[in-house]
Design a protein around this nucleic acid. Structure first.
Lengths: 132, 132
DNA sequence: CTTGACCTTACAGTCACTGGAAGGTCTATC
DNA sequence: GATAGACCTTCCAGTGACTGTAAGGTCAAG
């Protein structure tokens, strides 16, 4: 398979696939014409990577997870440790974003949003709540 | 005030303040020695930027918000539009992260996390759920 | 007059791609 | 055999918002 085929099959941009090769996540063979020639195993790895990235794992986590996936003698505790760490990061991000959301929802709800210049959002950003 | 003083006062790294000058968000004066000399107005802008960034607004949004803040004839609808758009982005991010969290929580809970190689997390990433 | 804390610029690196230029290859049609 | 268009290649630059580091200038205290 050429890169266009795996791109469709794995639902990843060709650019991304080339990038994954560049950083050593995959090592597709090459044809005589210099084109990358992808095996079923390459495609399988790309799908693995696509799913892991969709769950928010970093590239380095993906590299480790892929190595564990290929290692028959792995301990599932290794995998779980990575997933739990990532889960903690996600929970932290959600908490942060939720605080932003609440603040913004409050500010937006108190802003008239009309032609007049008076604006609680700008007042808050300007620090009026703390200064007065 | 020198950069160290405003850095403390605005709770922003000096590096970040220099960067904000570089991209034209602030224009502090310069002393004879070449040091940046910050006014109270500069400090006020930096605090504004710090709060806006803490709410997740992009630098370009911050640039616009700061201009609106300084513009006495602004319409609050402009501000509200930006805040609402940003709020939508945040809600989308939360939704995405929450889906990741749920999937990961499920996977982590079904993984023994011991010495054995069998691992539902890797099985899922490998696509077993779809293949069988 | 030296030490050390502060300041300066300039350049590289981060993360995970994405865009674009310049060119080679393949397939189908004329 | 020529040509068009779709594919492939590499290489370099850009994204966002900083952060790190190197090499050097300035200032106040002792």
């Amino acid at each position: 398979m050429n890169i266009g085929d795996v791109s469709t099959a794995a639902d990843l941009p060709a650019k991304t696939i080339r990038y994954y090769e560049e950083i050593g996540l995959i090592r597709p063979a090459r044809g005589q014409n210099g084109y990358r020639s992808f095996s079923q195993s390459d495609l399988h790895k790309l799908r693995f990577l696509g799913r892991a990235r969709a769950l928010g794992f970093s590239i380095e986590d993906c590299r480790t997870l892929l190595a564990l996936y290929e290692n028959e003698g792995r301990a599932s505790s290794e995998v779980r440790k990575i997933a739990e760490s990532h889960l903690r990061d996600i929970r932290t991000k959600i908490t942060t974003l939720d605080a932003m959301r609440q603040t913004l929802e409050h500010l937006v709800s108190t802003c008239a949003g009309d032609d007049r210049p008076d604006c609680p959002i700008l007042n808050d950003l300007g620090g009026s709540a703390h200064e007065k």
